[in-house]
Design a protein around this nucleic acid. Structure first.
Lengths: 208, 208
DNA sequence: TAGATTGTTAATCGATTAACAATC
DNA sequence: TAGATTGTTAATCGATTAACAATC
Protein backbone atom coordinates (compact mmCIF):
# COMPACT_ATOMS: atom_id res chain seq x y z
CA UNK A 1 0.00 0.00 0.00
CA UNK A 2 1.41 3.33 -1.06
CA UNK A 3 0.49 6.36 0.98
CA UNK A 4 1.99 9.72 1.46
CA UNK A 5 3.49 11.22 4.57
CA UNK A 6 0.84 13.88 4.98
CA UNK A 7 -1.88 11.29 5.02
CA UNK A 8 -0.22 9.40 7.89
CA UNK A 9 0.31 12.64 9.79
CA UNK A 10 -3.41 13.29 9.45
CA UNK A 11 -4.15 9.84 10.87
CA UNK A 12 -2.15 10.81 13.96
CA UNK A 13 -4.10 14.03 14.24
CA UNK A 14 -7.42 12.20 13.90
CA UNK A 15 -6.36 9.83 16.65
CA UNK A 16 -5.42 12.70 18.97
CA UNK A 17 -8.65 14.52 18.22
CA UNK A 18 -10.69 11.38 18.86
CA UNK A 19 -9.20 11.00 22.34
CA UNK A 20 -10.17 14.57 23.10
CA UNK A 21 -13.72 13.98 21.81
CA UNK A 22 -13.95 10.77 23.80
CA UNK A 23 -12.85 12.62 26.94
CA UNK A 24 -15.70 15.04 26.33
CA UNK A 25 -18.11 12.11 26.36
CA UNK A 26 -18.70 11.63 22.65
CA UNK A 27 -19.30 8.08 21.44
CA UNK A 28 -19.60 8.64 17.73
CA UNK A 29 -18.33 11.24 15.31
CA UNK A 30 -19.14 12.40 11.79
CA UNK A 31 -16.53 13.11 9.16
CA UNK A 32 -17.19 16.82 9.35
CA UNK A 33 -16.81 16.93 13.16
CA UNK A 34 -13.45 15.28 12.83
CA UNK A 35 -12.47 17.56 9.97
CA UNK A 36 -13.23 20.57 12.15
CA UNK A 37 -11.15 19.19 15.01
CA UNK A 38 -8.03 18.81 12.91
CA UNK A 39 -8.54 21.68 10.48
CA UNK A 40 -9.26 19.53 7.47
CA UNK A 41 -12.30 18.78 5.30
CA UNK A 42 -14.94 16.06 5.53
CA UNK A 43 -13.93 14.78 2.09
CA UNK A 44 -10.34 14.46 3.17
CA UNK A 45 -11.29 12.53 6.30
CA UNK A 46 -13.46 10.03 4.42
CA UNK A 47 -10.87 9.70 1.68
CA UNK A 48 -8.11 8.99 4.21
CA UNK A 49 -10.24 6.37 5.94
CA UNK A 50 -11.20 4.69 2.71
CA UNK A 51 -7.52 4.35 1.79
CA UNK A 52 -7.15 2.15 4.84
CA UNK A 53 -10.45 0.35 4.44
CA UNK A 54 -11.93 2.02 7.48
CA UNK A 55 -15.67 2.33 7.11
CA UNK A 56 -18.37 3.92 9.19
CA UNK A 57 -22.14 3.78 9.05
CA UNK A 58 -24.06 5.68 6.44
CA UNK A 59 -26.10 8.15 8.40
CA UNK A 60 -24.54 6.98 11.69
CA UNK A 61 -21.00 8.29 11.32
CA UNK A 62 -18.11 6.50 12.98
CA UNK A 63 -17.97 4.89 16.39
CA UNK A 64 -15.06 6.51 18.20
CA UNK A 65 -13.79 3.47 20.09
CA UNK A 66 -13.71 1.27 16.98
CA UNK A 67 -12.11 4.05 14.98
CA UNK A 68 -9.41 4.54 17.60
CA UNK A 69 -8.66 0.86 17.65
CA UNK A 70 -8.15 0.83 13.89
CA UNK A 71 -6.06 4.00 13.82
CA UNK A 72 -3.94 2.79 16.73
CA UNK A 73 -3.33 -0.47 14.97
CA UNK A 74 -2.30 1.28 11.74
CA UNK A 75 0.02 3.61 13.64
CA UNK A 76 1.62 0.79 15.62
CA UNK A 77 0.26 2.07 18.94
CA UNK A 78 -0.78 -1.44 19.97
CA UNK A 79 2.77 -2.22 20.97
CA UNK A 80 5.44 -0.39 22.93
CA UNK A 81 7.87 1.37 20.61
CA UNK A 82 11.45 1.20 21.82
CA UNK A 83 13.71 4.11 20.90
CA UNK A 84 17.25 5.22 21.63
CA UNK A 85 18.78 8.68 21.51
CA UNK A 86 22.22 9.25 20.03
CA UNK A 87 23.89 12.35 21.46
CA UNK A 88 23.34 13.66 24.98
CA UNK A 89 23.79 17.36 24.31
CA UNK A 90 21.11 19.95 24.97
CA UNK A 91 18.58 18.62 22.48
CA UNK A 92 19.29 14.95 23.07
CA UNK A 93 19.04 15.31 26.84
CA UNK A 94 15.80 17.25 26.58
CA UNK A 95 14.28 14.53 24.42
CA UNK A 96 15.36 11.84 26.88
CA UNK A 97 13.64 13.69 29.71
CA UNK A 98 10.60 14.74 27.71
CA UNK A 99 7.49 13.14 29.14
CA UNK A 100 5.31 13.49 26.06
CA UNK A 101 6.56 10.29 24.44
CA UNK A 102 5.43 7.97 27.22
CA UNK A 103 1.81 8.87 26.73
CA UNK A 104 2.21 7.79 23.13
CA UNK A 105 3.61 4.38 23.96
CA UNK A 106 7.10 5.44 22.98
CA UNK A 107 9.81 4.44 25.43
CA UNK A 108 13.34 5.79 25.31
CA UNK A 109 15.54 2.98 26.56
CA UNK A 110 18.87 4.73 26.54
CA UNK A 111 21.04 7.58 25.40
CA UNK A 112 24.53 7.36 23.95
CA UNK A 113 27.42 9.81 23.81
CA UNK A 114 31.13 9.81 23.08
CA UNK A 115 31.87 12.22 25.94
CA UNK A 116 32.78 10.16 29.07
CA UNK A 117 31.58 13.06 31.26
CA UNK A 118 28.03 12.52 29.99
CA UNK A 119 27.85 8.83 30.89
CA UNK A 120 25.42 8.00 33.67
CA UNK A 121 24.23 4.43 34.00
CA UNK A 122 21.91 5.25 36.88
CA UNK A 123 19.72 8.00 35.48
CA UNK A 124 16.10 7.30 34.57
CA UNK A 125 17.19 6.94 30.97
CA UNK A 126 20.74 5.60 31.23
CA UNK A 127 23.38 7.41 29.22
CA UNK A 128 25.95 4.98 27.90
CA UNK A 129 29.18 5.22 25.91
CA UNK A 130 28.65 5.30 22.18
CA UNK A 131 30.77 2.20 21.70
CA UNK A 132 28.07 0.18 23.42
CA UNK A 133 25.32 1.25 21.06
CA UNK A 134 25.65 -1.59 18.55
CA UNK A 135 25.40 -4.28 21.18
CA UNK A 136 22.50 -2.44 22.83
CA UNK A 137 20.51 -2.16 19.59
CA UNK A 138 20.97 -5.84 18.89
CA UNK A 139 20.24 -7.00 22.42
CA UNK A 140 17.07 -4.94 22.70
CA UNK A 141 15.93 -5.31 19.09
CA UNK A 142 15.65 -1.59 18.57
CA UNK A 143 14.61 -0.24 15.19
CA UNK A 144 14.12 3.48 15.83
CA UNK A 145 16.73 6.06 16.83
CA UNK A 146 16.66 9.78 17.47
CA UNK A 147 19.83 11.44 16.28
CA UNK A 148 20.90 14.59 18.12
CA UNK A 149 24.62 14.89 17.49
CA UNK A 150 26.66 17.76 15.95
CA UNK A 151 26.47 17.93 12.18
CA UNK A 152 29.97 16.62 11.57
CA UNK A 153 29.23 13.47 13.59
CA UNK A 154 25.86 12.72 12.02
CA UNK A 155 26.69 10.76 8.88
CA UNK A 156 29.08 8.45 10.68
CA UNK A 157 26.61 7.88 13.51
CA UNK A 158 23.88 6.92 11.05
CA UNK A 159 26.12 4.40 9.38
CA UNK A 160 27.05 2.88 12.72
CA UNK A 161 23.49 2.43 13.96
CA UNK A 162 21.97 1.29 10.69
CA UNK A 163 24.69 -1.31 10.54
CA UNK A 164 23.45 -2.59 13.87
CA UNK A 165 19.81 -2.84 12.83
CA UNK A 166 18.22 0.62 13.08
CA UNK A 167 15.51 1.01 10.40
CA UNK A 168 14.29 4.55 11.11
CA UNK A 169 16.07 7.72 12.21
CA UNK A 170 14.58 10.99 13.39
CA UNK A 171 17.42 13.34 12.65
CA UNK A 172 17.88 16.63 14.52
CA UNK A 173 21.40 17.27 13.27
CA UNK A 174 21.22 20.37 11.07
CA UNK A 175 22.10 18.74 7.80
CA UNK A 176 20.34 16.54 5.32
CA UNK A 177 21.56 13.01 5.75
CA UNK A 178 22.23 10.76 2.81
CA UNK A 179 19.75 7.93 2.74
CA UNK A 180 21.11 4.61 3.86
CA UNK A 181 19.86 1.40 2.26
CA UNK A 182 17.08 -0.09 4.33
CA UNK A 183 16.68 2.87 6.68
CA UNK A 184 14.19 5.73 6.60
CA UNK A 185 15.44 9.12 7.73
CA UNK A 186 13.07 11.90 8.77
CA UNK A 187 14.81 15.23 9.14
CA UNK A 188 13.72 17.81 11.71
CA UNK A 189 15.82 20.87 11.04
CA UNK A 190 15.19 23.47 13.72
CA UNK A 191 17.18 26.21 12.03
CA UNK A 192 15.29 25.72 8.78
CA UNK A 193 11.93 25.66 10.58
CA UNK A 194 12.71 29.00 12.18
CA UNK A 195 14.14 30.43 8.97
CA UNK A 196 10.94 29.44 7.21
CA UNK A 197 8.78 31.12 9.81
CA UNK A 198 10.91 34.26 9.64
CA UNK A 199 10.51 34.38 5.86
CA UNK A 200 6.73 34.23 5.98
CA UNK A 201 6.51 36.74 8.80
CA UNK A 202 8.66 39.17 6.83
CA UNK A 203 6.62 38.63 3.66
CA UNK A 204 3.42 39.37 5.58
CA UNK A 205 5.05 42.49 7.00
CA UNK A 206 5.95 43.71 3.51
CA UNK A 207 2.45 43.19 2.16
CA UNK A 208 0.99 45.55 4.71
CA UNK B 1 4.30 36.94 -4.31
CA UNK B 2 2.73 33.60 -3.54
CA UNK B 3 5.06 30.75 -2.79
CA UNK B 4 4.75 27.51 -0.98
CA UNK B 5 6.49 26.39 2.16
CA UNK B 6 8.49 23.64 0.47
CA UNK B 7 9.97 26.10 -1.95
CA UNK B 8 11.25 28.32 0.88
CA UNK B 9 12.64 25.29 2.70
CA UNK B 10 14.54 24.44 -0.45
CA UNK B 11 15.97 27.96 -0.57
CA UNK B 12 17.36 27.36 2.93
CA UNK B 13 18.88 24.11 1.80
CA UNK B 14 20.44 25.72 -1.27
CA UNK B 15 21.94 28.39 0.96
CA UNK B 16 23.42 25.80 3.32
CA UNK B 17 24.77 23.76 0.44
CA UNK B 18 26.33 26.84 -1.14
CA UNK B 19 28.29 27.61 2.02
CA UNK B 20 29.64 24.08 2.00
CA UNK B 21 30.60 24.37 -1.66
CA UNK B 22 32.21 27.73 -1.00
CA UNK B 23 34.20 26.21 1.87
CA UNK B 24 35.48 23.62 -0.59
CA UNK B 25 36.78 26.41 -2.79
CA UNK B 26 34.08 26.53 -5.46
CA UNK B 27 33.29 29.91 -6.97
CA UNK B 28 30.46 29.00 -9.29
CA UNK B 29 27.86 26.26 -9.42
CA UNK B 30 25.51 24.76 -12.00
CA UNK B 31 21.89 23.94 -11.31
CA UNK B 32 22.60 20.24 -11.38
CA UNK B 33 25.47 20.49 -8.88
CA UNK B 34 23.19 22.27 -6.49
CA UNK B 35 20.40 19.78 -7.12
CA UNK B 36 22.76 16.97 -6.21
CA UNK B 37 23.81 18.69 -3.00
CA UNK B 38 20.29 19.03 -1.72
CA UNK B 39 18.73 15.94 -3.27
CA UNK B 40 16.60 17.77 -5.79
CA UNK B 41 16.57 18.17 -9.57
CA UNK B 42 18.15 20.74 -11.84
CA UNK B 43 14.71 21.77 -13.12
CA UNK B 44 13.51 22.37 -9.60
CA UNK B 45 16.50 24.52 -8.77
CA UNK B 46 16.12 26.72 -11.83
CA UNK B 47 12.37 26.95 -11.33
CA UNK B 48 12.81 28.01 -7.70
CA UNK B 49 15.33 30.65 -8.68
CA UNK B 50 13.19 31.99 -11.47
CA UNK B 51 10.28 32.43 -9.02
CA UNK B 52 12.46 34.92 -7.18
CA UNK B 53 13.96 36.50 -10.26
CA UNK B 54 17.38 35.04 -9.55
CA UNK B 55 19.26 34.53 -12.78
CA UNK B 56 22.58 32.97 -13.65
CA UNK B 57 24.65 32.93 -16.79
CA UNK B 58 23.74 30.72 -19.68
CA UNK B 59 26.62 28.32 -19.99
CA UNK B 60 28.32 29.87 -16.96
CA UNK B 61 26.03 28.71 -14.17
CA UNK B 62 25.62 30.77 -11.01
CA UNK B 63 28.26 32.69 -9.09
CA UNK B 64 28.12 31.41 -5.53
CA UNK B 65 28.78 34.67 -3.70
CA UNK B 66 26.11 36.55 -5.63
CA UNK B 67 23.66 33.69 -5.21
CA UNK B 68 24.27 33.59 -1.46
CA UNK B 69 23.70 37.31 -1.18
CA UNK B 70 20.35 37.00 -2.91
CA UNK B 71 19.21 33.95 -0.95
CA UNK B 72 20.29 35.52 2.33
CA UNK B 73 18.37 38.64 1.50
CA UNK B 74 15.21 36.66 0.65
CA UNK B 75 15.52 34.63 3.84
CA UNK B 76 16.06 37.67 6.03
CA UNK B 77 19.62 36.65 6.93
CA UNK B 78 20.90 40.17 6.38
CA UNK B 79 19.61 41.22 9.77
CA UNK B 80 19.72 39.73 13.24
CA UNK B 81 16.49 37.89 14.03
CA UNK B 82 15.38 38.33 17.62
CA UNK B 83 13.46 35.47 19.19
CA UNK B 84 12.02 34.60 22.61
CA UNK B 85 11.20 31.22 24.09
CA UNK B 86 8.02 30.66 26.08
CA UNK B 87 8.35 27.77 28.52
CA UNK B 88 11.59 26.80 30.26
CA UNK B 89 10.94 23.06 30.57
CA UNK B 90 13.17 20.44 29.00
CA UNK B 91 12.57 21.40 25.40
CA UNK B 92 12.45 25.15 25.98
CA UNK B 93 15.68 25.13 27.99
CA UNK B 94 17.44 23.01 25.40
CA UNK B 95 16.45 25.45 22.65
CA UNK B 96 17.70 28.40 24.72
CA UNK B 97 21.09 26.73 25.11
CA UNK B 98 21.27 25.37 21.58
CA UNK B 99 24.18 26.95 19.72
CA UNK B 100 22.95 26.20 16.23
CA UNK B 101 20.75 29.29 15.99
CA UNK B 102 23.57 31.80 16.49
CA UNK B 103 25.33 30.67 13.34
CA UNK B 104 22.12 31.45 11.48
CA UNK B 105 21.84 34.97 12.81
CA UNK B 106 19.05 34.01 15.16
CA UNK B 107 19.42 35.36 18.69
CA UNK B 108 17.33 34.18 21.60
CA UNK B 109 16.93 37.20 23.85
CA UNK B 110 15.04 35.61 26.70
CA UNK B 111 12.99 32.77 28.07
CA UNK B 112 9.75 33.02 30.04
CA UNK B 113 8.08 30.70 32.51
CA UNK B 114 5.31 30.81 35.13
CA UNK B 115 7.33 28.71 37.58
CA UNK B 116 9.24 31.09 39.94
CA UNK B 117 11.84 28.36 40.50
CA UNK B 118 12.87 28.59 36.84
CA UNK B 119 13.51 32.35 36.87
CA UNK B 120 17.15 33.33 36.42
CA UNK B 121 17.95 36.86 35.33
CA UNK B 122 21.67 36.20 35.18
CA UNK B 123 21.95 33.23 32.85
CA UNK B 124 23.30 33.68 29.32
CA UNK B 125 19.73 33.75 28.11
CA UNK B 126 17.80 35.29 31.02
CA UNK B 127 14.71 33.41 32.15
CA UNK B 128 12.03 35.83 33.25
CA UNK B 129 8.54 35.56 34.75
CA UNK B 130 5.83 35.10 32.16
CA UNK B 131 4.05 38.24 33.31
CA UNK B 132 6.94 40.29 31.93
CA UNK B 133 6.67 38.87 28.45
CA UNK B 134 4.30 41.46 26.99
CA UNK B 135 6.46 44.38 28.07
CA UNK B 136 9.57 42.56 26.84
CA UNK B 137 8.10 41.90 23.39
CA UNK B 138 7.10 45.52 23.02
CA UNK B 139 10.33 46.97 24.37
CA UNK B 140 12.51 44.80 22.14
CA UNK B 141 10.23 44.78 19.09
CA UNK B 142 10.16 40.99 18.91
CA UNK B 143 8.08 39.29 16.23
CA UNK B 144 9.07 35.64 16.56
CA UNK B 145 8.46 33.29 19.50
CA UNK B 146 9.21 29.65 20.14
CA UNK B 147 6.47 28.03 22.18
CA UNK B 148 7.49 25.11 24.40
CA UNK B 149 4.83 24.92 27.07
CA UNK B 150 2.53 22.04 28.09
CA UNK B 151 -0.41 21.49 25.77
CA UNK B 152 -3.02 22.92 28.14
CA UNK B 153 -1.10 26.20 28.42
CA UNK B 154 -0.45 26.64 24.72
CA UNK B 155 -3.58 28.33 23.39
CA UNK B 156 -3.61 30.92 26.14
CA UNK B 157 0.10 31.62 25.75
CA UNK B 158 -0.35 32.22 22.02
CA UNK B 159 -3.12 34.69 22.62
CA UNK B 160 -1.04 36.54 25.16
CA UNK B 161 2.02 36.94 22.96
CA UNK B 162 0.20 37.70 19.72
CA UNK B 163 -1.63 40.40 21.61
CA UNK B 164 1.73 41.92 22.43
CA UNK B 165 3.01 41.90 18.85
CA UNK B 166 4.31 38.42 18.02
CA UNK B 167 3.74 37.64 14.32
CA UNK B 168 5.18 34.14 14.06
CA UNK B 169 5.21 31.18 16.43
CA UNK B 170 7.18 27.96 16.21
CA UNK B 171 5.02 25.68 18.30
CA UNK B 172 6.46 22.62 20.05
CA UNK B 173 3.40 22.03 22.24
CA UNK B 174 1.88 18.74 21.12
CA UNK B 175 -1.37 20.08 19.78
CA UNK B 176 -2.45 21.95 16.72
CA UNK B 177 -2.98 25.58 17.63
CA UNK B 178 -5.86 27.56 16.27
CA UNK B 179 -4.62 30.26 13.96
CA UNK B 180 -4.66 33.71 15.40
CA UNK B 181 -5.39 36.70 13.17
CA UNK B 182 -2.16 38.23 11.96
CA UNK B 183 0.12 35.51 13.29
CA UNK B 184 1.65 32.53 11.48
CA UNK B 185 2.00 29.33 13.46
CA UNK B 186 4.37 26.55 12.39
CA UNK B 187 3.81 23.35 14.34
CA UNK B 188 6.65 20.98 15.16
CA UNK B 189 5.01 17.97 16.78
CA UNK B 190 7.70 15.62 18.04
CA UNK B 191 5.28 12.82 18.94
CA UNK B 192 3.73 12.92 15.50
CA UNK B 193 7.14 12.99 13.81
CA UNK B 194 8.13 9.84 15.66
CA UNK B 195 4.78 8.19 15.10
CA UNK B 196 5.16 8.86 11.40
CA UNK B 197 8.61 7.33 11.31
CA UNK B 198 7.36 4.28 13.22
CA UNK B 199 4.54 3.81 10.73
CA UNK B 200 6.83 3.78 7.72
CA UNK B 201 9.38 1.54 9.41
CA UNK B 202 6.63 -0.95 10.22
CA UNK B 203 5.25 -0.82 6.69
CA UNK B 204 8.71 -1.52 5.29
CA UNK B 205 9.05 -4.43 7.71
CA UNK B 206 5.75 -5.92 6.53
CA UNK B 207 6.69 -5.69 2.86
CA UNK B 208 9.75 -7.83 3.39
C1' DT C 1 31.51 27.04 -34.18
C1' DA C 2 29.85 23.22 -31.30
C1' DG C 3 28.55 22.08 -26.90
C1' DA C 4 26.55 23.12 -22.64
C1' DT C 5 23.57 25.51 -19.66
C1' DT C 6 19.95 28.62 -18.52
C1' DG C 7 15.06 30.26 -18.24
C1' DT C 8 10.53 29.31 -19.27
C1' DT C 9 6.72 26.96 -21.15
C1' DA C 10 4.21 22.72 -21.50
C1' DA C 11 3.29 18.08 -19.73
C1' DT C 12 2.87 15.16 -16.01
C1' DC C 13 1.95 13.73 -11.66
C1' DG C 14 -0.22 13.41 -7.28
C1' DA C 15 -2.97 15.21 -3.77
C1' DT C 16 -7.06 17.65 -2.45
C1' DT C 17 -11.74 18.90 -3.12
C1' DA C 18 -16.31 18.47 -5.00
C1' DA C 19 -20.10 15.88 -6.38
C1' DC C 20 -23.38 12.49 -5.95
C1' DA C 21 -25.35 7.78 -5.90
C1' DA C 22 -26.08 4.49 -2.35
C1' DT C 23 -28.24 3.76 1.87
C1' DC C 24 -29.35 3.95 6.70
C1' DT D 1 -40.57 8.37 4.17
C1' DA D 2 -37.41 12.39 4.13
C1' DG D 3 -33.13 13.84 5.47
C1' DA D 4 -28.46 13.10 6.36
C1' DT D 5 -24.18 10.86 5.88
C1' DT D 6 -21.02 7.69 3.84
C1' DG D 7 -17.88 5.89 0.17
C1' DT D 8 -16.16 6.55 -4.18
C1' DT D 9 -15.60 8.56 -8.56
C1' DA D 10 -14.61 12.64 -11.19
C1' DA D 11 -12.85 17.39 -11.34
C1' DT D 12 -9.73 20.61 -9.79
C1' DC D 13 -5.73 22.37 -8.20
C1' DG D 14 -0.92 22.97 -7.45
C1' DA D 15 3.61 21.36 -7.51
C1' DT D 16 7.18 18.86 -9.87
C1' DT D 17 9.37 17.33 -13.96
C1' DA D 18 10.48 17.38 -18.79
C1' DA D 19 11.43 19.64 -22.92
C1' DC D 20 13.54 22.89 -25.64
C1' DA D 21 14.51 27.47 -27.62
C1' DA D 22 17.69 31.02 -26.48
C1' DT D 23 22.34 32.02 -25.93
C1' DC D 24 26.93 32.21 -24.02
Amino acid sequence: MITNKNCIIRLSRYKNALYRLQALGFVKVFSDNLADSVGSTASQVRKDFSLFGISGNKKGGYQIDILLEKLNSILGKDQLQKVIVIGAGHIGSALMRYRGFEKEGIKILGGFDIDPAKINRNSVVPILPLEEVKAFIKAQGIKIAILAVPDIAAQQAVEMITGAGIKGVLNFAPLRLKDVEGCIINNVNLEIELENLIYFVNVEAKIK
